[in-house]
Nucleic acid binder design. Structure first.
Lengths: 348, 348
DNA sequence: CTATAGTGATAAAACATTTTATCATAACTT
DNA sequence: AAGTTATGATAAAATGTTTTATCACTATAG
């Protein structure tokens, strides 16, 4: 059916090995070929429109030029989630630039069964980028064990051998809170993300650090266990509005942008204007943050860059290059928009 | 390194062919094997943790179990675009359910060069799902030519042999416009999408049809060449607000949700309340539509379902099953939210 | 005049499968 | 008793590459 290397060899009147050597520009190393036959081979290959079969090539070289990208199995993480889009976008950009291909995988939670193993430690991919919001994954442990190249994104671990890409979540939490303190707020709530996700805890730590540093004592009711979804922010806001007036916060630092949007929506429905009566800070600063009303002040997480870096590190690993650093923590910064303002004057 | 079929054969004390037959449940067809050896083989395979090498298998069977998903190369189409996310999400869901894998591709515009050909007509994928907003692609023609299984999404063509998945854009345009007419609007603008994208024209047709059917004569200024991006809606709104009062529309049917968000933003900045002074209708009804302020009335396009159907059809094609239908046009409906209302009373 | 080295190549092995062809043996038919 | 058929297998071919080993032949050095 398709044109093979043998067809080229036959047309050029040479051996298969010569064709292979010429087409891989590896002539001169083991196999020598004269300039004349080199030209004949090139001509023949062009004439037949020959393209090497990647399967056969991979079978013998043990390399495929394909990277695997693994998301946790959760439709929420793939669909309607600017975070995973941007990770993917960054990964994809780098992968394409470096001439690799990208294969998508899923169905991997924290548990790791035989089916997953076959799916992931697959000779069809040279390495894996794992988006692993849950800590202590056995997936990554298994990769280490069999020395399968892997890079984990948003993954917290003690093991210094594991390649990880993270953002400075604690500093992000600090920045968000400090910004509100500088505006004059003293009663600041933090809607904490899903505790199963590794980024939730450090952000809370950053919040606590900023509060402590400013000499503010956070009420326990201000640290609300919410979540990363829209409706988590919505319901958490409803709860916090039931606090007695003197305990009611004047600012909310939400778990992420989606959560913050839920906060804004709940506030709007209660007739509480943002930012005049309540300041709101988001987290992630995805494209979506600038689309809310009012546009959201948010901690900018370099998500796209994290995806890109993950791909860079993985490619280095796959190509056997030594990586300068195994664990990265990218800096974050605060993007101030219009959802934050000084607290309202006390009317009581 | 890895455990091969030979290791299993050796441990079980049988031939390689017997192992292959047993493990593929194809025993009895050509190769017969007794129940006793069958058990020995199964046991040996389990003990060694054998997993067949997909590369070697694909090389001989000519099938890989991998589908390719191709997006046009445009970062806007991958990043920050709820549309492509949802397509991908639908495709992915079906692909995973059916035990296939998904490979991502890009770098294909309307032009189709040799590099693209090698990348796409790749033995590593059994077939392609092409997201092809631009009509008359030579990509799809080439796939037809070499009988490479392919399904095109949002692709307009005269060729009835090409498998396509579309939504009823004309009816969508009709529904959006009719809704505004029923509310009492007579001066209705339509912000037309990128003319290079095949969905733009039918939506305009639907708009015109609804207007005509209601006996309304649309002013040429109301059909604004805008685009599918946020800022297209923003700038088009600024232009339309400069029309003299008697020509100024009371409702805008935007090219899509992103465009509509730009419209709302521009109106807000001009102090024109939505929907009291101006009704706005979006298109696509992505998750994002319910997040705007006010929540957007939008034509619901079954994007996720389109992705899913595309994968279904492609898998049928790949597996050699005859498909009931080669070209699908999925129905759309209107989701009414709070961005539309009757026109303001004439104050002049 | 014989080792050695260099040149230009080819044949064969290896990669891990599936598929096809072949081969005994026993049982059953004619 | 010879021929057919069913059973249970195995060896070998095929898939399309890359890599390793081998082979002539010539020129140069000792």
């Amino acid at each position: 059916m398709a044109v093979t290397i043998r067809d080229v060899a036959k047309l050029a009147g040479t051996s298969v090995s010569a064709v292979s050597a010429v087409l891989n520009n590896t002539a001169g190393r083991r196999i020598r070929v004269s300039e004349a036959t080199r030209q004949r081979i090139l001509e023949a290959a062009k004439q037949l429109g020959y393209a090497p079969n990647p399967l056969a090539r991979s079978l013998v070289t043990g390399r495929t030029g394909v990277l695997g990208l693994v998301f946790p199995y959760s439709r929420a993480f793939i669909d309607r989630n600017p975070f995973s889009d941007q990770i993917m976008s960054g990964v994809f950009e780098e992968v394409v630039n470096e001439g690799y291909n990208l294969m998508l995988h899923t169905a991997v939670g924290n548990d790791w069964n035989a089916a997953d193993e076959k799916m992931l430690l697959d000779p069809r991919v040279d390495g894996l980028i794992l988006v692993l919001p849950s800590p202590n994954s056995s997936v990554i442990a298994r990769c280490q064990e069999v020395k399968f190249p892997a890079v984990a994104v948003v993954y917290a671990t003690e093991n210094k051998q594991v390649c990880t890409i993270n953002a400075d979540d604690q500093h992000g939490g600090f920045l968000a809170t400090q910004h509100l303190i500088e505006l004059g707020h003293t009663r600041i709530a933090h809607f904490v993300g899903d505790p199963k996700v590794s980024t939730a805890q450090p952000r809370l730590q950053g919040y606590l650090k900023a509060m402590e540093q400013a000499g503010l004592q956070p009420e326990p009711e201000w640290m609300v266990q919410a979540g990363f979804d829209w409706k988590d922010g919505y319901s958490a806001t409803q709860r916090i509005l039931q606090l007695p007036k003197h305990k009611r916060p004047t600012a909310i630092f939400a778990a992420n942008d989606l959560c913050a949007e839920g906060v804004i929506r709940a506030l709007r429905e209660q007739g509480i204007p943002v930012p005049e009566q309540m300041s709101v800070v988001g987290y992630d600063d995805t494209w979506f943050a600038s689309m809310t009303n009012p546009p959201l002040t948010s901690v900018h997480m370099p998500i796209y860059e994290m995806g890109k870096l993950a791909a860079q590190v993985l490619i280095a690993l796959v190509e056997g290059r030594e990586v300068a650093q195994r664990q990265y923590t990218l800096p974050v910064h605060l993007t101030v928009r219009q959802s934050t303002a000084p607290p309202p004057k006390e009317s009581s």
